[in-house]
Structures are given as structure tokens and as C-alpha cells.
Design a protein around this nucleic acid. Sequence first.
DNA 1: ACTTGCCATGTTAACGATAACATAAGCAAA
DNA 2: TTTGCTTATGTTATCGTTAACATGGCAAGT
Lengths: 340, 340
Amino acid sequence: MTRSAKTPTMIDVAQRAGVSPMTVSRAFKRDASVSDDTRRKIHAAAEALGYVFDSTASNLRSQKTGFLAVIIPSLNNANFADTVGAMTTQLRDSDLQILLGYTDYDIEEEERLVEQFLRRRPEAIVVTGGKHTGRTRRLLQNAGIPVVETWDLPEDPIDNVVGFSNAAAVGQMVDHFVARGLTRIGFIGGDEASDTRGFDRRRGFVAAMRAHGLTADRLIAGGPPPVMMREGAQAMADMLTRWPDVQAAICVSDLSGFGALTECQRRGIAVPGDISIGGFGAYDISAQCLPTLTTIDAFSSEIGRATGQLVDELLRNPARDRPAPQRIMVHPRLVVRGSG
Amino acid sequence: MTRSAKTPTMIDVAQRAGVSPMTVSRAFKRDASVSDDTRRKIHAAAEALGYVFDSTASNLRSQKTGFLAVIIPSLNNANFADTVGAMTTQLRDSDLQILLGYTDYDIEEEERLVEQFLRRRPEAIVVTGGKHTGRTRRLLQNAGIPVVETWDLPEDPIDNVVGFSNAAAVGQMVDHFVARGLTRIGFIGGDEASDTRGFDRRRGFVAAMRAHGLTADRLIAGGPPPVMMREGAQAMADMLTRWPDVQAAICVSDLSGFGALTECQRRGIAVPGDISIGGFGAYDISAQCLPTLTTIDAFSSEIGRATGQLVDELLRNPARDRPAPQRIMVHPRLVVRGSG
DNA sequence: ACTTGCCATGTTAACGATAACATAAGCAAA
DNA sequence: TTTGCTTATGTTATCGTTAACATGGCAAGT
């Protein structure tokens, strides 16, 4: 074979198999009508030539890319990774290819990503959260494809929503601690507006405390997201310094919750004897640490599964007759464990 | 505006701006020569029409997609997530778009992914590990694009490599424990061949033990990957049952290491007093738990950075005059901490 | 035998951008 | 003034596939 001849195309395959290029094209589709005999011949020819189907051309001509754009704040966050994982699983048989991007919790970066992704002509786009720049909203609204906002319940959704109220979820945990007779409860994290969901959780904490007639001023900063274990430990140290009488600490995530827990242990403070601790997210670690961590399971996987299913359904109908925007609620569950 | 008129193309923008489509095309490139005045006019027209550049067409005509295919075993693994994160950062200014896929530690799934990705005509492809199906190897070799195998040192590389020896890394840890006078050392995990790197770590454990003249039969299965905290705890329980005299346990990852640690704590076994524990991967948790976990830092981020840089360099030259395949070594470092 | 209709296949043109080449204008050097 | 070179722009054809339409053959229905 002459080396470095160009990459073979359908035309080459067609010639070798003695059919027209169109038939080759059909042979590479699932449902197209091609006789078994011809199909075999074509695949043999393709294999022999080392032909690899070119989606690039297919995408252009058919005006379908098979891309699903998905934007999450951070790859390195098990919750979002779970969501994306479940979405992938759900979409396994729908030949959609996920185009994954992450914003580092920055809506300007999100704007850049959305713009970049829309150039690839995805068939739908999934974003995390409901807070976006004006330009992002405009781009998404005009893209003419289904949009799904996840992990949140925006007041004014762009299109579809699969999410839950972060504020209400934390409210459940406050109720739980109060029911156990604790009143001096603090919150760690959620101080940076850029972490929209963390911010909402803190809001939910304050609201729930007030609803119980309790003061909600034991608030400790966790710093800019991602709030990790180390920051949680530091925050707990601050908490103990400023409010030594604190009876419970609710953390913006299990990671900071675990950090807070270890800080208590380093200081010989008993958990939950002296202080109760709550986290958020049902990360693996919350089920494995000692004591296990009371947390809120937001069902990250379910969000991904439901989003995948929704996208799949939406794309099944032609754009013309798609149902009205949906608002799918996921219901976070308080998981009471050893830490309080 | 007439609703649902088709998505505008460059032709529409060109007409509105009073120039030719070619000029519009140039105005959307960075380095093309277009007068400032014209460029402004064109961008204004594009904005007014809500025009969004169509990469799909551009890709076909220019035979460049700007895609970099990256395949990792699992999204939900902080090490690989770090690698991908660092790669993204490194490639920020190179307008390459990462096409991310994960195999769930299954080389058949890898084959499917490689095939799927190659259809998208990526400009380079990064895979994790050096073990692939025959067809995968063939596909990668014939793809005519740079290939990088990472996180491993394959004996017979397909093309470029950015990695390290998992076996040798674990050897360092064995040496460390032996130097501390421990001889009855066990290994947790790495029993499943599908987790190539885990398997290599176990091999490295056995080899290093033998090199010290010690028996290397204290091997506990961790089960199929991903080996998480829970499996580590179970494995430690098994270890203590079968070899109650064990002095140290080296775990295939920090996650199982942490699980092992908590299991000891649940049983009142002092770490490192009664048993030393070592992990792998320098996950956040290893620095935060109590006691902190001795581990091996494989520099996941550095792997990503170096890979990104390599790809960038390779793609800078035309295919014709690319340097010979490179083999970039990363040197894992033993991080001695509280657990032994 | 003659529609009717389906199935397998072929022909033609187009998806939307841009490579490659062409040209006009401007300006510096000779 | 002429030549040469750069800069800004236009023209034409094409990237590889497939939508849309066309066709021939063969089976079933009347």
C-alpha cells in the first residue's frame, strides 16, 4: 500500500465494495435498508482500508452533531462527577456524546464555555445552577436547543430544570438539630456568592434558624470554592474560638464537614457528645469516617439520570412539537448518622 | 424579526455588513488580516443577527477539529480528575477542546470509546494506561495523530508516554516500612487485572518484599475497581482475621487506605502503634485524616500538565516533521505521614 | 396480467465554512 | 516613475457525508 495516501473516505470504500457511496453511508447507519450481503461486503472493504467514519462531514450535512454540552462547576467534586456519570449511563444507548466543561465556579468562565460549546452545535445543553451572566442567558435562549438547569431551582428558569432547593434541604437539618434540643447552631461556608449553591445553603440555614426563633449569627467563612477538607478544619477552629458555646455546626459540604470533625478530634472535643456536625452531599467519606457524618443526600445521581432521560425525550421529538419546559424536582433526604 | 427563520450563517452576516463571506470568516479568526473598521462592522452585524460561528463546517473544510480526545478510567477519581484538570489548564490558550470519556476500567469499553472518538477526528488522543485491546492498538496506530499513554510505563508504547512505574513507586513504600523494622507487611487491593495500575502496584509490592527477603503472601483482595473506602475497611477486616500478626498494610489507594484506617480505629487497634498503614495517590483525605496517611504522591497534576504541554508542542509542527515519540517520566514521591 | 407497493440501490446537490488563488490599493525603495 | 512588496478583500471550488428524490426489480393483491 502506498504509505501516507490520504485517509480513505466513503468513496474509497464504495469503489472497493463495488457500490455507490450512498450505500456505504447507509451501511454505517443502524436502521437504513441495506441487504445483509451488501452490508457485509462494505464492512469488509472498510476494515481492509482502515476506513474510519467521519462524523465531521456527517454532522455538517445532516445538521446533527450528537453532542450534548454539559457544564459543571468542577470536575473534582464527587457530586457533580456522579451527576455526569449517571447522565452518561442514562444516555448510553442514545448515541449522544457528552461535551464536558467546567467553570471553576465562575459565571464569566461559564459564559466563555457556553459560547465555545454552542459553536459545536450541540443538540442540547445542561448547565449547573440558575445564575448566569446576561449574555449567557441570551445565548442559551437563542440557541434553539433544549436547555436544562440543574442542581438548583431558579426563580426564572431559562427552559427546563432538574433540581432542588438547597435552602430547604439545609432547613431539614436545622429542624433535626433543633428537635434534638440544640439551639446554638453555626454554619460553615457558603460565604462566597460565586458558590451559588453554598450561598443558598447558608441562606436556608439563616431562614430556618429564624423560623425557630433562634439567632443565626454563628456564621464562619469557608473561603472561595471549592471548599475542601482543610478549609473546614480551619473554619471549625475559628468557630470554636469565636463561639466556644456552639452546640452544632452545619457545613456547606461533607468535605468541610469532615475537616471540621477532624479538627474537633484533634482538640479532644467529642462528636457528637460536645458538638454535633452536619455535612451536605452524602459523599463516600460521610459514610465511612468515625463517627459517620450526618448529611443531606441530594441524590446527585438521580439528577443526572433524570436530566439524561429528559434530554433524551426532548430530542426524540422534532423541535416543533416539544412539550413545555419541565421542572423536575429531586427531594434531598436528611441522613442521620453518628455525628449528630 | 420573523421567528424561526433559520439560524443565520456567515452569508447573512456578510450581506448585513456589506462584505464577502470570506471576509467574515477572516474576521472571526485571530490572526487574519482584516481592517479594524471592517472587523468592527462584521462583529456588530453578527451580534445583531445573533450569529454563532459554526465549527462543524469549519472543521470539515479546514480538516481541523480542535478536539483532543482524553480517555480516563473513571471520572469519579480525584487523581484522574486532577490530571484532566491540569491538562485543561495547560491547554487553556491553545484552543483545543477536550473530548472526555471514561472506561470504567474496562478495555473493551476503551475500544468502543476510541472508535467513537476517532470518528470525531481529534487532533491527538490521550489514553490512560498501556494495556489495550489489539483493535484499540491498531486503531490508534493508524489514526495518524499523536497518541499519549499516561499513568504507566508500557513496555511497548504505541507512541508517546507520560507516566511512571507503579510497581517501583510501591517499592519505595516497602523500603520505607522495612527500614522502620517492619517485616510482616500486607497489601490490600490490586487483585483485579482490569485495574492495571492497581495490579502493577501489587506486583511492585511482591517484588520489593522478595528483594528484602521477606514473604509477600499477605495479599487481600479489594474487589473490582473502583476500590473505595468501604472495600478498604472490609479488606482490613479480612487481613486482621487471616494474619493477626500483620505489622503494616499497604493499600492500593488512599481511599482503601482510609477505609483500612477507620476499620482499625473501630477495633481499637492503634495506628501506627499496632499497625502502620500506607496509601497511594496523595488524595486530600490522606493529608486531613487522623492520623494523616503515609502515601505516595504520583503527581497527577504534573502528568496532566506535561501531557498537555507535549500535545501542544506536537501539534505545533505539521505531522511531517514531528519529533520521535517521547517518553516523559514523572517521579512519584513517598510522603511519610502519621500512619507509619 | 396489471397495478400497487416495498425494498435495495443510485444520482444530484447541498450542509457552511475556508484553502488557494486572484486582485486592487497603498506605500516604500530604487 | 517604475518596480516590488504588503495589506485588505474577493472568487471559486471543495472538505466528506447524506437529504431528497429517482429507479429498477420483485412479491403480493386483485
